[in-house]
Design a protein around this nucleic acid. Structure first.
Lengths: 258, 258
DNA sequence: GGTCGTCTAAGGTCTGACCACTTTGTGTCG
DNA sequence: CGACACAAAGTGGTCAGACCTTAGACGACC
């Protein structure tokens, strides 16, 4: 009985058309999309009111429960504001919220861009951390470093190595005492992890990586910002070189010259 | 008539207790909170299953519609995953998503931190933009600059000045051709705007601001990265000094020395 | 032994009713 | 005439119960 054209949907407004059209995507999701389209299509601006729940039901040919679930979803996403006794309104997500949403959709960023950002963020972070880190924090940092060292010696899997590497850098960022920086660095590491085929993660030369990390940690322990910055810069550049080379190799292997 | 104990809620499970207990917070919101608490309280880990919808209804003493709306909200926030025919599960938001959420909750960041980040981000951005911006982009940048200049000449309100200032800097970041940087810069500007009392926005000395912006724009037009970086650094530092001074004054005025 | 139904539990949707909040208009009283 | 009170309409909020669809498990049949 499903997979049939919905009953008397005359040529007037076949908004839904076919129910269960194969995809079996939940109804409320499609309703949410349709409401989004409605807003965009009719050029509704933030603050504008859109049809009431009951009206939307009729418009879209679904029950009120589905419309309400769709609205809850849209409201949670900040696209819509539902006000008891007044109606449903297009919300005005502040610029920051919108940027965040675009951020979360920004899945694919080039490796070059990400590595450029690493240098931008991590070099000053290392400098600040050298100035500001407490002895306690330095001890914790050393512990993390030693774990990394041990993991390399034990020839741990690349997945694990990458996680430890990320953790070390994140820790340094944290000790720079700048919450915005910490957040951004977290995001960056996350996207880097996703962008690199996990297998070619820790740049290939674990031994070298350990040496470079050691230089950074030593500079931090010595409270020497300039040396910390330099060490961080060297490390990131070397990592970048290795990663990009790998990617190039990979590409060459899959698409042989012809 | 509200503000009364809900009817025959015996001592069995007075989970809800009083409806409309003053706050009139929608039920489904409270339900969502309770489910969150349930997950946290019982130490449920990502992947764990939580009680079915009908069970939750009974547990919380509400209807299934409310439970479902709450779940929709939680699902949209990525805290929960609802799977047809199987049940409701605690979701495993990836680290990036969680960082993003913390980011959006991170409302109050010190001005010092934000200005430090401005320097970190905008100085290299100016350098890259000097190298990479196309003639077309430079023309657009100049247009923006002239609008700012004109606004200053016309003694526009601080609100508007700040918006134009933000737009100019955002544009530069964009021309650096690094999507991650652009996003981060957008977020930063947004938080700066929120952190400064809007009135003390554009640092006070509009004329000086225009001159400094002019230096940056000129360096970009000349495709001179070093000069662009230097100009950007000067501008940000001068802006920071002015802003922090203002804040200090403000504080002194409201809390006179004792 | 593998395959195919059937049964069960779970989410998905619908219906219609009623409750609560807002606004508005209207009517009464000062 | 004006101000306040109340009632009605419109809109979101909640409830109750029913039925449908899906996923998985279990058992009968080939």
């Amino acid at each position: 009985m499903p997979d049939q054209p919905v009953t008397e949907a005359g040529p007037g407004s076949p908004v839904v058309g076919w129910r269960w059209m194969g995809s079996s995507e939940p109804l409320f999701l499609r309703v949410a999309e349709q409401i989004e389209r409605f807003v965009a299509g009719n050029g509704l601006a933030p603050g504008d009111r859109l049809p009431g729940e009951r009206e939307l039901c009729e418009l879209l040919g679904v029950s009120r429960a589905s419309v309400r679930e769709a609205l809850r979803s849209l409201e949670t996403r900040g696209l819509v504001r539902v006000r008891h006794g007044k109606g449903v309104f297009v919300a005005a997500p502040d610029e920051g919220e919108r940027a965040l949403q675009r951020f979360s959709r920004l899945r694919e960023v080039g490796l070059e861009e990400l590595f450029a950002m690493r240098e931008v963020l991590e070099v000053p972070a290392a400098g600040w951390a050298a100035t500001e880190a407490t002895d306690e924090q330095l001890a914790s940092l050393i512990a993390t470093f030693e774990q990394l060292e041990q993991a390399v010696r034990a020839q741990a899997g690349p997945e694990q190595l990458r996680a430890m590497d990320a953790r070390l850098h994140l820790q340094i960022a944290e000790y720079a005492n700048n919450r915005f920086l910490t957040m951004t660095q977290t995001l960056l590491q996350e996207m880097l992890g996703r962008s690199m085929d996990t297998t070619l993660s820790v740049t290939g030369r674990p031994a070298r990586s350990v040496r470079e990390h050691a230089e950074i940690v030593n500079a931090l322990v010595a409270h020497d910002p300039a040396r910390a910055r330099a060490a961080a810069r060297r490390h990131i550049r070397s990592t970048r070189r290795a990663a990009l080379n790998r990617v190039a190799e990979e590409r060459q292997r899959s698409v042989p010259p012809g």
